[in-house]
Amino acid sequence: MDCPTCEAMVDAYVDGELSATDSAAFELALETCPDCRRRLEAARTMGGLLRELPADPAPDLLRARIERELRAIAATAQPKSPRERIRWTAMAASLVLAIGLGWLGGSLSGQGARETDELVSGYLRVASSERAVDVASSDRHTVKPWFAGRIDYSPPVHDLTAGGYPLEGGRLDIVDGRKVSVLVYRHNQHRVALTLWPASSTGNAAPKVTQRSGFALAEWRHGGFEMRAVSDLAPAEMASFATAVDQAVDADR
């Protein structure tokens, strides 16, 4: 075999694409051709280098987004009652959020990003699930005791109907490896998920509302609790929600 032939076969040989006969002929030719032996070595090295690149598995969030779409598609194929139709509209809205979330997750960094990711995924579960809450009640005297024994603190629970945010109930979530309480409020067609846990620093910190791809995040500290709210409310509404929470907490003391 002359060298150009041999050279042309190096890649196919490395890639296991040669027939047994061609492979044998190639191996024989290699013995007399140091250039092609070097070429073979280089191709193998290259393959090894590329194969040792760390795998980058699909993020959980992507998986969740696709799962949610698949569920929605499977369900829309069924004949549906008007009531169900409303639910799927809500779910479609949450998909829009989910897409925004991907962007959000990638644009922040480190610890804060993970917390935000967790909070927003929690919100998406609230927004898209038929069972948004583990305990459904607008009665704080039902919701507050429900948390006892499930988490290691007692969150302030208030019905904010007077402020335009009726309490729907509560649920548990995990943020930064810690079990936390989530209160779910409704405002017209929107839901607000308020996640709160005991603050490690003292003093209050005023709500900071940020908006990302169509949904609002509020972050503040009040009455000894870290508060995080996520919703598809407008930022201004999110700010009034935070104020309503703070006023209820203050009124209780």
Binding site: R65, I66, I99, G102, W103, S107
Partner: peptide, 10 residues
Amino acid sequence: DPVAAQDLAQ
């Protein structure tokens, strides 16, 4: 880009 990749994959 990891974020664009998620959108593309979806």
